[in-house]
């Protein structure tokens, strides 16, 4: 029986491979979830800008998604999707929930970028007889997106830190794995602390990367 009060490095090494495998799953969920959020967020933002009831609906749906807990949304997807006949894995469900939850936040970032494009760019594009789709694809978005990449990066970090919630719907990500290891050996200290340290290191490194990006963007080119 190892001493309960001391930190056991040998035990850390022993559980490291299992945690590393789980970290890979967490990372996968975060990257796929972010990609979905980027796509849905753009769709939501464009819908919000179309005139008519669609814009109103998009606004309310996004407000509701943004202000309710991700955990409840996770449960809702997890229990409701199968009853509608959709059979997908827990990990995929988690990716869907993460992507949908972060879409409204991402849409806000897009909005800031789009509003940062000068009105004269729109006027010029219209004067050149561009179609709306062409204006978006060739004039507005190429100018709106690069400045907001750091803000999107921050949301990716936030999303990554929410992946432990997938433990609640049986995904074997980092936290769930740490909990199981802890339950098997009655030592929660090392696995939980390692998971915390992993998130801390990742997010510190990622926020440093985001700051570098910001600095590069701020420099006049």
């Amino acid at each position: 029986m190892p001493d309960q009060l001391t930190w056991d490095w040998g035990y850390c090494l022993e559980i490291a491979p299992e945690l590393a495998r789980a970290a890979w799953i967490s990372l996968q969920a975060a990257v796929l979830g972010m990609l979905l959020a980027l796509a849905l967020g753009l769709a939501g933002e464009l819908l919000r800008r179309t005139p008519g009831p669609l814009s109103w609906a998009a606004r309310w749906v996004m407000e509701a998604v943004r202000t309710t807990p991700l955990l409840v949304q996770l449960f809702a997807w997890f229990y409701l999707l199968p009853s509608t006949g959709v059979q997908i894995s827990a990990l995929t469900t988690g990716v869907v929930a993460l992507g949908v939850h972060y879409a409204p936040f991402v849409a806000e970032v897009y909005r800031a970028g789009i509003e940062g494009v000068p009105e004269s760019q729109w006027d010029a594009a219209r004067a050149l007889n561009f179609k709306p789709a062409q204006i978006w694809c060739h004039v507005v978005l190429p100018q709106a997106l690069p400045p907001v990449i750091p803000a999107l990066g921050n949301y990716f970090i936030a999303l990554f830190k929410e992946t432990p919630l997938l433990a609640a719907i049986t995904v074997m990500e980092l936290l769930q794995t740490a909990k199981i290891i802890g339950a098997e050996s009655f030592r929660y200290l090392e696995p939980l602390t390692l998971v915390g340290a992993f998130f801390l290191l990742c997010s510190l490194a990622a926020s440093r990367a985001v700051r570098c990006m910001e600095a590069r963007l701020a420099r006049p080119s």
């Binding site: 309960q4 009060l5 830190k161 929410e162 992946t163 432990p164 919630l165 433990a167 936290l175 740490a178 909990k179 802890g182 030592r187 929660y188 200290l189 939980l192 602390t193 998971v195 915390g196 998130f199 801390l200 997010s203 510190l204 926020s207």
Partner: peptide, 19 residues
């Protein structure tokens, strides 16, 4: 800000009792 809220919660609830 760097660690996940759920991890913090679990750490305080499950790991602190060890001390």
């Amino acid at each position: 800000r760097g660690t996940s809220a759920l991890v913090q919660l679990f750490w305080v609830y499950y790991a602190l009792p060890i001390f």
